[in-house]
Amino acid sequence: MKQETTLSYRDSVHHMGRIWMAFALAMMLAVPLCICLFYDAWPDPAGLLKGFFSVAPIFWTVGVIEVFTYVPMLGTGGSYLGFVTGNLSNLKVPCALNAMERANVHASTEEGEVISTIAIATSAIVTTVIIALGVLLLAQIEPFLESEIMQPAFDNILPALFGALAVVYVSKNWKIAVTPLVFMIALFVLVPSLASSVGVLVPVGALIAIGVARILYKKGLL
């Protein structure tokens, strides 16, 4: 019986998510279309193609990778909402992971699903409010935000975020973590230019971690 209710809840989230996603896609495409119609300014085809081909190869690849790596982590509701509201790796995914860790629930269970969705929804609302307030109060806060003293703080947000997250996850799974960590550090030290395509390397890290985990698990070491 429990299995059935589990399935029907997930199914209802999928159903709802697909409808919202279709609207979101339509709205995203409607924005440039409205701009073109309103200003009677249609994009220059050569520029559009050139721009598109400079962006699509890397970002479409990252987009596909993000779907396959983040959907299992975020659960059904979290994925639909996370992919619409954006800022996944620098905000939504760490936020959901932390919330599930604190609540002591696992992704892919229904409790995990509930916690992840609540975390991502809250994060999306707070982000929207902060950006709106920031734009409205820009004159007051810009000197502070753009002061030279504050620059290191904003330049180092990702190291500060992942340093703290690593303590939680690496300490819990250090046997699995060592190999992908050493590999990634060595890779980025040797080829610094890869920093701009870190999104593509997430699944590489995941494959290494899962491969190592499989070997350790088979040997009964986990």
Binding site: T69, P72, M73, S89, V93, L97, H106, A107, S108, L158, P159, F162, G163, L165, A166, Y169, V170, K172, N173, I176, A177, P180, L181, F183, M184, I185, L187, F188, V189, P192, L194, A195, V198, L201, V202, P203, V204, G205, A206, L207, I208, A209, I210, V212, A213
Partner: peptide, 19 residues
């Protein structure tokens, strides 16, 4: 398996710190 996915992501973003 899911922990492996997390760690893959975290190790990639920790690696970048050393770039």
């Amino acid at each position: 398996f899911i922990a492996g996915l997390f760690l893959g992501m975290i190790s990639a973003f920790l690696g970048v710190v050393f770039a």
